[in-house]
Design a protein around this nucleic acid. Sequence first.
DNA 1: CGCTACTTTCACATATTTGTGAAGTTAAGA
DNA 2: TCTTAACTTCACAAATATGTGAAAGTAGCG
Lengths: 168, 168
Amino acid sequence: MREAAEPTERERDPEAVSKFVEGFAAQLVEAGMQRMPARVFAALLSSDSGALTSAELGARLQVSPAAVSGAVRYLAQQHMVSREREPGSRRERYRVHSDQWYEALTNREAVLKRWESALREGVTSLGEDTPAGRRMAETLAFFEFVDGEIVAMMERWRVHREERFGRR
Amino acid sequence: MREAAEPTERERDPEAVSKFVEGFAAQLVEAGMQRMPARVFAALLSSDSGALTSAELGARLQVSPAAVSGAVRYLAQQHMVSREREPGSRRERYRVHSDQWYEALTNREAVLKRWESALREGVTSLGEDTPAGRRMAETLAFFEFVDGEIVAMMERWRVHREERFGRR
DNA sequence: CGCTACTTTCACATATTTGTGAAGTTAAGA
DNA sequence: TCTTAACTTCACAAATATGTGAAAGTAGCG
């Protein structure tokens, strides 16, 4: 079972693809994402099929299987890619859905929740009648507000998207 | 001009304060922020005055002036603290506003903008008629949508906040 | 104009992160 | 059941990031 046996993807200018991958990954890194997960994610995003095997990723990004494995584990935890076992092969494919960003955003919400609970503790332990307590209470209220807004926003997005791109 | 000459803040249980500071900072770190900026920000948030000098920060966090300087520079760039020169002293105070989070969010918007332009390049260079191009175009549309929503959301927050906390 | 209180910059030692090769594990197919 | 392709784990070397002390810069105040 050779690599070349899978022309899953008619090749475009690999130069251009690579340039996009590295550029986009750099932006993600700057926003706080680790380098390798960022590169893997960008590579998937730029692939026509939206799904690549470990070997394909390794080849495109010039990294070892170990590096791919680590990156993919991270991305899967963050719900940014899903894994699929190809039936009848021991290969695994890693896929981005175009709506994967919702999952990623949802995950950000988990971060917000943790901030909120830390703030709640802070308000309690510093006292809600102190200036610091009041500031933290307001901050907390802000996050709670944002939580709710995000849910509503995603609903509006689904509608907007259907109008613009049609139902999937 | 001694340190002790400024009882800006009636002291609460320093134990509890420190526990909050380290806990909240840890959450911020986990979300991608560097350790020292996170600790400084948490310390400011938990102070009654909402503003501390470099020396006070150094003392509370047990770090050198150099570390405070670096952290504060970063936070100011991110618009998460503002600097104020105390008139009649060469001390500087670093302040959090309770609405500082808006600024921070606004800054996140700058990140989104950069993602958008990277995606736009990707769509162009990979071709908008390819599957990958279409996926990226949809992703781009999502971010553009989010941009607009955030602006609207912040307006709603201002209203909500005024109802709940009164005008500042 | 100094003097000196405060802040910033810089070189460096230390800690942390990152990616690799190689060994280990799993499961498809004979 | 055995073989072996494919993925994962692990110990380690290299690259990065982090915080410090010390030196250099700034700006109030006499």
